[in-house]
Design a protein around this nucleic acid. Sequence first.
RNA 1: CGGGGCGUAGCGCAGUCUGGCAGCGCGGCUGCUUUGGGAGCAGUAGGUCGCAGGUUCGAAUCCUGCCGCCCCGACCA
Length: 575
Amino acid sequence: MRLSKLVGKRIKEIPKDAQTTSHILLVRGGYVRQVSTGIYTLLPLAKRIKSKVEAIIRQEMNNIDGQEILMPVVLPSELWEESGRLHTVGPELLRFSDRNKKEMILGMTHEEAVVHAVRTDINSYKQLPVMLYQIQTKYRDEARPRAGLIRVREFTMKDAYSFHTSQDCLCAYYQQVHDAYENIFKKIGFKNVVSIQSDPGMMGGNTSHEFMAIADCGEDTIFMSANGEYKANRDIAQSCLHHSIEKKLPLEKVHTPGKKTIDEVAKFLGVPTSKAGKAVFYADGNDNVIFVVIRGDIDVNEVKLKNYLNTQDLQFATDEQIRKIGCVSGYASPLNIDFEKTRVIFDQSAAKEFNLIVGANEEDYHYKNFNFSREMATVTDKIDTVDLAVVKEGEPCPVTGEPLVLKRGIEIGNIFQLGTKYTDSMGCSYLDQKGKSQTMIMGCYGIGVGRIIASVIEQSNDKFGPIWPFSIAPYHVHICAINSKKPEVKQAAENLYSKFLVEKIEVIYDDRTEKPGSMFNDADLIGVPLRIIISPKTLDRKEVEFKTRDGSRKEFIPLESITEFIKAEIDCRSQ
RNA sequence: CGGGGCGUAGCGCAGUCUGGCAGCGCGGCUGCUUUGGGAGCAGUAGGUCGCAGGUUCGAAUCCUGCCGCCCCGACCA
């Protein structure tokens, strides 16, 4: 490719709309252009990178017996009606009607579509297990797209779906996909990707992992032990807090006039907030009130709570709802509660702590020295004790005991063991050896292609531009012809370029008559790993200069042997 | 959806408070000079000042409404 003809001009100024490194460099380098919020055109450089990423993914998916298909972007609502997601998924699902008033949607993920395909074409255990995948455009009507390609509305995703006759088979395959994903991210050239346990969320199912590219601009929070043995996202991370053993003191009612919040009560009684039991009330859509007790210095993790209650529908209870179950807002207490009217859940922190301050269920009064094991002894079977805590950086790791480290990450892939959530509701079954109809067991596996491009930049750049890993670089070699108005330079550069084309070397050739500074800056922005500089100076010595984008090498090579030299360099990087 | 910011040439911005010729830098095009880290000179093209309405002799500037874009939050397989 001649740089003079490449569509996508480099821009010197920092684009007004861009903040993150990858966004700035993708725009400045002429890789992408925004069309609307969260909607981008990929220009030739980005398209080449994307194709290379896809090729790596495709190879690994085929390696684990995946069969590539292509499902529609536009889908009839009926399919989503069948799975039930038409109503459970919020406004991020874009809905519209066609000219015949038929309700349609834009696919944000394709479980329904793939189940439709599988239930039509697979009906015997002999055809299972099977994995189908596609690399296809997805649309999600995101509330707030941001950071260039990292959070967008329209994007390309590799989504794969596997179908099994047993949970064991799914588990084994899940592990294969996990391994394939690690291969993919390694081949792409990421410096730092971790797989962490995650919350399955709206996808349903049990086990799931997220693959996180570690980057400061990432929107996900990851807790890790220093040695990396424990890794979990914010939604499910746990910590093991220390509880110093104390002598249980007698329960004592104290006057706390007007002190309603944890801070006020703790300060008034001269104890740290960790010695107070916080009462938090939630209500679901059916007016059921859930009474959560947690240590005063810890917040309730609503994702953990929703998962535990197996509901997505949960809000803070209103004062009215709290009153109805017989609690006094601000002085609510787990003591003497009517278990018929509310469900009580203790976070472990509050259950294990000694001599807590709790409410007295009476205006202006609290109790001192509440001890769960003593005060709740007769009703423990009516109380759930679970982990609902929001974990904070520095708390002890549940596995190693070291302080947890907080990192930011970009979710570039995820894998789920879905079970029968979709196959059940959509009637996706097969006949087993005995001729009996069985429901298929399903897994699904996604990778965000656009996010990968941005994430690689976040992990591999300098102040001049991206430093592409060889495997996904838009080109392998970049030729700069300096002072190409001189016929000998022009001639040598053109010769080399033609030769490279003949040798099928992926080359981009800066054939412009720019100043060297402009050419080098543009080359840095394009980020091609190998660079050849031809100038009057090098030609005087019958040489060209060879440089790597990462700055690790800079040497002069005889003009006559440069083609073989470059071929060898490419070979040893391709393997 | 809540809070904040922005919208003027392809890009980055000044001008808006205090109404009075549509500006600057980069980029583009032409010519000459220059060529190892974003060159110089000369010339030239490029505008619905986001849109609509209002106030005024006169609106980029003041008023009203709308739209778009960015950031924080809420939300998010």
